[in-house]
Amino acid sequence: MKTLNQRAWFFVLPVLVLVAFNALIPIMTVVNYSVQETFGDNLFFWQGLDWFQQILRSDRFHAALGRQFLFTGLILAIEIPLGIIIALSMPRQGFWVPVCLVTMALPMLIPWNVVGSMWNIFTLPDIGLLGYFLNHTLGIPYDMTQSPIAAWITIVVMDVWHWTSLVVLLCYAGLMSIPDAYYQAAKIDGASSWAVFRYIQLPKMKTVLTIAILLRFMDSFNIYTEPFTLTGGGPGNSTTLLSIDLVKIALGQFDLGPAAAMSLIYFAITLLVSWVFYTVMTKGDTN
């Protein structure tokens, strides 16, 4: 029997150290803070599970959680089908392939706070290109600083603009990996384009789609910077997503205990939904 070289394990050590410092130690600290009260100066008083109970029963948390699920649901419902459609309509070879790819990649290169500021200025009714056009040329009242509906449309469109490309690029990579023989066989059998999509392209894209859905779920569920710079959670509380509310509690009110309890509940939700997505989408492969 061949003995395996175990030396490769040492190459994992740097990652382990990194994960310890950017994930493990912070999460341990958050668990510690979630059961204590502090007024600063490293003085802590035991609070038990009061913060958890308070958060679980607070209307403010329920409202933010509802908005968060609405936002993530909208994002997934729009970006995944749109990404697939764009990937299917991109050319497979020739001059336009790199042009399309670079154009697609551009929004993802822009820093998140810049995206928020861009869309903020873009949609302002008096000076923004889109805002001015809608309000003064078309006569549609559209002001994301006044109307919750306009604010919601703006954050959803902004996220679609920013992140659909990720889905497109992943799907395109999946499509490119399909050998021509599959298409030739489909042509010989006289398969419709829907059948080609349903039985050749979609199954071949399944792995990358799993990754795309998981990434888009986690990113949109934990989104902070873009809506914060765009609407700041307003008008009122209408776009206060979970992370914005969390930062308000932790840094605005300096309630570290309740904020820690809330972030653990937040983490548990992200973990469960990601696990369900992953299990459902990979179930076919293991059967």
Partner: peptide, 9 residues
């Protein structure tokens, strides 16, 4: 200390 350990956690 800042990590605020207790025996319970």
């Amino acid at each position: 200390t800042w990590m605020a350990w207790t025996a319970a956690t």
